[in-house]
Simulated scan of single mutants.
Amino acid sequence: VSTSQEVEVQVLEVDSVKRRISLGLKQTMRNPWEVFVEKFPVGSTVEGEVKNKTEFGLFLGLEGDVDGMVHLSDLDWKQPGEQVIDNFKKGDMVKAVVLDVDVEKERISLGVKQLEGDPFAEPGDVKKGAVVTCEVLDVKEGGIDVKIVGTDFTTFIKRSELARDRNDQRAERFAVGEKVDARVIQFDKKARKVQVSIKALEVAEEKEAIAQYGSSDSGATLGDILGTALKQRTDK
């Protein structure tokens, strides 16, 4: 508004003792949160400018001059929100999904991760006991970060799960970009956790080879048995 402009207001209070009249401009307008939820019901995709970053999440400026909040837990499916929030800065334009609108409390809850499907909701062939191919993302002292090929699942294989033989439990023998086979040893939808093990796969293959090609009790060495199994698989 500006000086000399005529506006319509609502009388809120008249104090004859103090000779004061309280007026309201917003009371003559529709509640902006009601207008927002009519145009953008729950499930809608919106875009807003990052107005502020806090320990709780992001505040986005939305259409209708209202703000919405993206909680840390709704920033990413795979990474902690405390890490992901560093990827955003004030002024960024961000797309999000409307999760909830509380008109009475004037609150709008938004989610960025909801723009993509939840990998744990539709895991495909990834389940406990399955054999998967993983790509090495990073090599650390205590193990390797990997991504299950063909999925959005990432996980950490600790040193003790890198091989059956203790001498081979060395993270440095792997390289970024290398692909390795492993066995899924945990898939917990509730805890949103998936774990794989190269060691578990080697142990399972060893047991299968002994079952198919003989046992060490019959006089064959483990090397003979595994050699036969490897040759059989190579021939196939």
Rank of each mutant, 00 (worst) to 15 (best):
K189N: 13
R164M: 15
G223F: 06
E55K: 13
G143A: 03
S22Q: 09
F187I: 10
K231G: 01
K89D: 05
L115M: 12
D92A: 11
K147I: 11
V176S: 01
V149A: 13
T151I: 05
S44I: 02
E6N: 01
E208K: 04
T154P: 03
V94A: 06
D188S: 07
F56K: 10
W77N: 01
K51C: 03
V42Y: 01
G24M: 03
M69S: 03
T45Y: 05
R166Q: 13
E49D: 10
D65F: 11
V1E: 09
V7C: 03
A121C: 00
R173Q: 14
D102R: 02
V14I: 11
A209K: 00
E55W: 07
S109A: 14
Q212A: 15
V180G: 00
V14L: 12
S16K: 10
D217F: 12
R107F: 01
D235M: 06
I198R: 15
V46W: 11
L58P: 02
E141R: 09
K158L: 05
R30K: 14
K207Q: 14
P80W: 03
R164N: 12
S73Q: 11
V35D: 14
Y213E: 07
W77Q: 01
D86I: 02
V94M: 12
K199A: 09
V103Y: 00
S16D: 10
I108Y: 02
K90C: 00
G124K: 00
P41E: 08
V203W: 08
I148W: 07
G91P: 03
D138S: 12
G150E: 03
G227H: 07
D76N: 15
F153M: 02
V131H: 05
K105A: 13
E8M: 09
E82Y: 06
D125A: 12
K199C: 04
E13W: 11
D92H: 11
T3D: 09
Q169F: 09
T133I: 03
F88W: 06
G43N: 02
K140M: 13
V50W: 00
S22N: 14
V46S: 02
F88Y: 15
D102I: 05
K53M: 03
L115F: 10
D100T: 08
T154E: 14
Q212L: 15
V184K: 01
E135H: 05
D74K: 08
D168K: 13
Q27G: 12
A182K: 03
D152R: 09
G24E: 07
M29P: 02
L23S: 00
V42C: 05
S160I: 11
I198S: 06
D100F: 14
I21S: 05
K179E: 15
L25I: 15
R170N: 07
E82R: 15
D67L: 04
F59C: 04
H71R: 12
V7I: 10
Q186P: 07
V136T: 05
S2V: 11
F156W: 05
L222P: 13
P80R: 04
D235H: 00
M69T: 07
